[in-house]
Design a protein around this nucleic acid. Structure first.
Lengths: 210, 210
DNA sequence: GAGTATGCGGAGGATTACCTTCCGCTTCTC
DNA sequence: GAGAAGCGGAAGGTAATCCTCCGCATACTC
């Protein structure tokens, strides 16, 4: 009963698979990576049986969601770098994009359970690495442009970034534009010239790797 | 077998009670308000029986932890306002204090489950209100001093504040000073003159009340 | 349009995690 | 040192979740 990826899925199966991934992304972001499988199935408009047929266990689902999310983020990162006139603009666009999607990236980086599943998977681990490289490029470039304070590293940006990913408290979430305001305020913190002296040392790209 | 608050506790019981509250604060912050009671008991160095004797159910424990945390925060807020030369300094001190304690305040404000327990309790609800009033005072004062940008409201500060409360991903948490750097960067975002234009409208003190 | 393989749904047994009680033993207090 | 107050943790009860399984439905093939 192995799932052969070479064999093309029937049209309805394909559709259901996509819906499951999309639903899982949303649910994982809202409820964390051990949300009930039934919730995910319901959100996807399928039965649990369908979910389990395609993703034999939770780990598989998490991995596939991660691959999907990393892929989207990476595409946007590349587009930002290529299409925006400056690294700073690329950084702003990229961070804004992620926010808008409520990207489940943070799952991959934050949650201990999900993190283990993903770290043990060469494909997702490589995705993560490449994504961080692109972010590093944007940050260093923006610093060279004089748009970002030089006493921070890529890790600092990633850290703020990860904080932004997290769902806001329900009450604040209802307020129009709350997360965009957060994002803008944080970006202004990154731009500050001269900023308040920061404690410790810059958190670099390397700090985020194993 | 009602717990009579008027009757003074035996010394060891008193000590255990304090340890339980402290442990619960830590555990709640790390794991959320439905962490297993046994984890809390273990962290406090007592048996579950002891925990239940003092706090008949989870709701009671949450409420008492909330009262404790609000009380601490309020004390520090008052001290900050009185002892610091400016409202800005008070704000910085207050936010720094909360971070240092990994204040479980956010539990009270964020989590739906815990929030319900607390909102239905007049005592904790009043605490929350007073605390927000003090924060409002600091923010408006700092704006009058020209230290904080005027296109934000107290609610915006609380929002950033709440984001800071959340536990950082394990990897970042190991890096010395990570959360202090976050805090400083955010504060610089609040100070930005002139800042990037913000979307929507300022989030006010009133927005945070019911 | 008939036949067949593939896919679907969701009830339900198994399992696990957690809550809470209870009672024999321990520790404080006077 | 006596008795009240407190303690621990085993264990029964409960609820939630996992995952399988199989009769029915749907999409593809000729």
């Amino acid at each position: 009963m192995a799932v052969d990826p070479a064999m093309p899925l029937r049209a309805d199966a394909r559709r259901n698979r996509d819906q499951i991934i999309a639903a899982a992304r949303t649910i994982f972001v809202d409820q964390g990576p051990d949300a009930p499988m039934e919730d995910i199935a319901r959100a996807a408009g399928v039965g649990v049986g369908t979910l389990y047929r395609r993703f034999p266990d939770r780990g598989t689902l998490i991995r596939e969601v991660a691959v999907d999310s990393f892929g989207r983020a990476l595409t946007e990162a590349r587009a930002s770098i290529e299409e925006e006139p400056t690294c700073w603009d690329a950084l702003v666009r990229f961070i804004g994009f992620s926010q808008e999607l409520r990207l489940s990236l943070h799952l991959a980086m934050i949650s201990a359970q999900a993190g283990a599943v993903i770290r043990d998977d060469p494909a997702t681990d490589e995705f993560r690495r490449v994504l961080l490289t692109d972010l590093d490029h944007m940050v260093k470039g923006a610093q060279a442009e004089g748009k970002v304070r030089t006493d921070i590293g890529t890790g600092d940006v990633a850290m703020l970034f990860v904080l932004l990913m997290r769902p806001l408290p329900a009450k604040l979430d209802e307020i129009e534009g709350a997360s965009e305001r957060c994002m803008t305020l944080m970006l202004d913190g990154l731009r500050a010239h001269p900023g308040t002296p920061l404690p410790s040392r810059p958190i670099t790209y390397e700090d985020l790797l194993d």
